[in-house]
């Protein structure tokens, strides 16, 4: 309980005066801000936004695989209903290319790392971090992997669950990210991938279904997201403290070019990037956010190194997907 005290304090202090500035007044007149996002369980932020600003936040959840199709369809028909959009960085980049997004740099952006807002359009605020999650009833902390390479150990044979490396874009990017950021050489990395394949992991369609088999003990460990330790509490889940950094796809947010509620859009983006929102995101959903000093309440996560991975183009994803499919099917 103790570790929550600082958060509560910060939250209490951070209730800045949202009313009063001109954007807020205009936004109030516009009435609402529509928010399309792939990130899950952010209702608390949307609610808090409504309470603090008097502008209604409307959250539409669109999964990554349908995000681009939905937004582009609406955009091309001139019916984009979103004022603010949030998606994995590669999707945001594509939307920017199509002219869906408008430049806007909130004041709060200054508090974020410089690399997180390089173009003045897309603001990166978090990392969809991937880790090795294990069942604490089946695996003792000392037996958990210390390095990624440990996952290739035959002791994990038939005990791993992961999203399908042939099709799940984030997992593909993550595997390629290991090659580029973690492993010393490509050969060493290839040994790891082949070793992992030889352990015959069970495939599911995305990260969503990865924690259930670990919780229930069907599998002992998985390539999954540490945020589930928060959202699935009190499930017996913990993350493997690795010597190497954790990696993930950056999450971006931006306002829409033809937003129906342009001021509300700005206000929402401001609010979303505020420390209060980021605290909520970290504490309620277990997200890894880029706001300095805000960490998810997962033991040891404040000390972990979490790095963004390079965006892979769809051609690269397809190429590597096919490659992983071949490697994993051989075993």
């Amino acid at each position: 309980m103790k570790k929550f005290v600082p958060f509560l304090l910060i939250m209490a202090l951070s209730t800045t005066a949202w009313a009063g500035n001109p954007v807020a007044e205009e936004a109030k007149a516009e009435g609402k801000a529509s928010f399309y996002a792939n990130i899950t369980a952010i209702e608390p932020i949307v609610e808090a936004f409504g309470e603090d600003t008097g502008v209604k936040g409307e959250y539409t959840r669109i999964s990554t695989s349908k995000f681009l199709a939905t937004v582009l369809t609406e955009f091309q028909a001139g019916k984009l209903m979103a004022d603010v959009l949030q998606a994995p960085l590669p999707v945001m980049e594509l939307l920017k290319e199509k002219g869906v997004l408008a430049p806007y740099r909130p004041a709060e952006a200054d508090k974020y790392p410089e690399w997180a807002s390089k173009d003045g359009v897309i603001q990166q605020f978090g990392i969809e971090y991937v880790g090795l999650i294990y069942n604490t009833e089946l695996v003792k902390p000392e037996d958990a992997p210390k390095r990624y390479q440990d996952l290739a150990d035959p002791k994990w044979k038939d005990r791993i669950v992961m999203a399908n490396p042939a099709s799940h874009a984030t997992t593909i990017s993550w595997l390629v990210g290991l090659k580029e950021n973690v492993f010393e050489s490509e050969a060493e990395w290839m040994d790891f991938v082949k070793g992992l394949a030889a352990n015959r992991p069970m495939f599911v369609k995305s990260f969503g279904p990865t924690p259930a088999p670990i919780e229930s003990g069907e599998k002992a460990i998985g390539i999954s997201m540490p945020k589930y330790i928060i959202t699935k509490a009190p499930a017996p889940l913990d993350w493997a403290r690795l010597e190497q950094p954790l990696m993930g796809t950056p999450r971006g947010i931006a306002i829409a070019a033809n937003a129906k509620h342009p001021n509300a859009a700005k206000l929402f983006m401001d609010y979303f990037l505020s420390q209060k929102s980021m605290n909520l995101l970290a504490s309620k959903v277990g997200e890894y956010v880029l706001y300095p000093g805000v960490f998810p309440p997962i033991d040891g996560m404040d000390k972990a190194k979490v790095i963004p991975i390079r965006e892979l183009s769809d051609e690269e994803l397809a190429k590597w997907g096919a490659e992983f499919k071949r490697i994993f099917e051989m075993s």
């Binding site: 349908k66 995000f67 681009l68 994995p88 594509l94 042939a166 874009a169 593909i172 769809d314 994803l317």
Partner: peptide
């Protein structure tokens, strides 16, 4: 798989 591999489904 055809729509999910890659971000621009």
């Amino acid at each position: 798989r055809a729509v999910s591999t890659g971000f621009s489904a």
